[in-house]
């Protein structure tokens, strides 16, 4: 309950921030929240389902292109585009998973396959005139008027959409964790052979978790496209995006409900700050160095991520007599 209180209060604060903060902060936090949602999608796949994806940009990109193509070329509502993106990305994930596991390609080799698939799609979209090729696609310039049916509005509007998405992701992750699927998937993640011996149909569950993760990533991608106002294959389907997606949950805490939010809140502003600092000091790429350093530090000092450390701290504060600093870590869990 305590972590719900903590997580919930973070969301309330974020809602207040949305009402009060400056446009720059709002657009930064919109990206944080979108990557929280994308991180939750990725986290579902690895943290709960045990399947590593390093090519999540494929699903993000498919969602983004579905929304952008329908909207820009045919004037169809992004709501339809989001649905189409879910279907396309979910199917792509399912087919990729089916092919892979059918031929016993698993673990790290499956992860390599996700990279290959994402890169294949990026190169294909980059050479495909119909989807704008390397020139990308541009949404009509925003008028600032809020139009829910076309998902168009100002920065604040997108901020609240992203906030709603992140909250939905948290509730969804928690609901899945506590359902039949959560138990079966975690059992499969921990030991696939043992889970199968207990009747878990691992083959279809692996395909299912990947399809769901892919479909949710597509929703995040579609909204990301709207927020950015334009998409290009190299950025929306590139390796860089795949890495950005997984930073949040890895830094925040793998397999935890609030990890992607905490991780994204820590990592993305840092990235922007370092980027600005780098421009100022004329050190290009300072943000990438900072990213790397933070990743190393987190893996070194908080191998479970930031969120589990906060939970442990919370428990220790509850019981001050236990001198948590002196206790071995295991005992705190």
């Amino acid at each position: 309950m305590k972590r719900w209180l903590a997580g919930g209060s973070v969301l309330v604060v974020l809602a207040l921030v949305g009402a009060l903060a400056s446009p720059y902060l709002i657009s930064l936090l919109t990206i944080v929240l979108l990557f929280t949602f994308l991180g939750q999608s990725w986290n579902l796949m690895l943290g709960i389902g045990g399947q590593l994806s390093i090519g999540h940009a494929l699903f993000v990109g498919l969602g983004a292109y579905s929304v952008a193509l329908l909207d820009v070329k045919y004037g169809v509502s992004p709501w339809i585009g989001l649905l189409l993106g879910m279907v396309i990305a979910g199917s792509a994930g399912a087919v990729l998973a089916w092919l892979s596991f059918r031929f016993e390609v698993r673990g790290i080799y499956f992860a390599l396959l996700t990279i290959a698939a994402a890169e294949f799609a990026r190169i294909m979209f980059g050479g495909w005139e119909f989807v704008g090729a390397m020139q990308g696609l541009f949404f009509p310039a925003p008028t600032g008027a809020i139009d829910i049916s076309m998902l168009r509005g100002d920065a604040r509007f997108y901020y609240f959409i992203a906030l709603a998405l992140a909250a939905l992701g948290i509730v969804g992750t928690e609901m899945i964790s506590r359902s039949y699927f959560g138990y079966v998937w975690r059992a499969m993640r921990d030991d696939e052979q043992a889970a199968r011996a207990l009747g878990v149909r691992a083959f279809r569950h692996k395909i299912l978790v990947i399809a769901i993760s892919a479909a949710t990533a597509a929703v995040g991608g579609g909204i990301l496209a709207l927020v950015q106002g334009s998409i290009f294959p190299d950025s929306i389907m590139g390796m860089g995006l795949s890495v950005d997606v997984l930073i949040g949950p890895v830094v925040g805490g793998l397999g935890t409900t609030f990890g992607p939010l905490v991780g994204s809140l820590a990592a993305i502003p840092l990235n922007h700050l370092m980027s600005a600092l780098g421009d100022c000091l004329r050190i290009p790429g300072l943000n990438s160095i900072a990213y790397g350093v933070v990743l190393v530090l987190v893996v070194w000092f908080l191998p479970d991520g930031i969120w589990p450390a906060i939970v442990r701290l919370g428990k220790a504060v509850q019981l001050p007599s236990r001198l948590w600093l002196l206790q071995p870590r295991k005992a705190e869990e």
Partner: peptide, 18 residues
């Protein structure tokens, strides 16, 4: 082969989902 991140009860629950 206990499932490491799950409690004793949760471990015992998995089989029932068959």
């Amino acid at each position: 082969r206990p499932m490491r991140d799950m409690s004793v009860l949760e471990n015992a629950m998995v089989g029932a989902f068959s």
